[in-house]
Amino acid sequence: MSTGRDPGLQPERTRLAWRRTLLAVTVVTVLAVRLASTGDPTGALIAGGAVLVWGALLVLCWPRGTGTGPARTGGRTLPLVTAGTVVLALLGVLLVLRGLW
C-alpha cells in the first residue's frame, strides 16, 4: 500500500486545497463588497463585516496552505472556516433583502 513517494504528495495536495479554498473565499468577498457598495451606511456596514470575515478566514487558512513537511489535519480550523462561510452567506441574504426595501 505504502510507497516512498506518496506520503510527500498528500500534504502538498492538502495545502493546495486550502489555497484554492482561500481563493474561493476571496472571490465571494469581492462579490459581496461589490453588491454592498451602493453608498449607504447599511451597505458599508455589511461590506465591512464581509471584509472582517475574509480577514479571519485568511488568518485561519494561510498557515494550512503554506510550509513544508507533514501537514496538520483536522482541528478547530474546519468548523471555524465553515462558520465563516455561513456568515458570508447570511450577509449575502441581508444584502439581497436590503435591495427589496
Binding site: A24, V27, A32, T85, L88, G92, V96
Partner: peptide, 8 residues
C-alpha cells in the same frame, strides 16, 4: 462557496 458566489 461557489453557490454563495453564484447567489451574490
Amino acid at each position: 462557496l461557489a453557490l454563495v458566489g453564484g447567489g451574490l
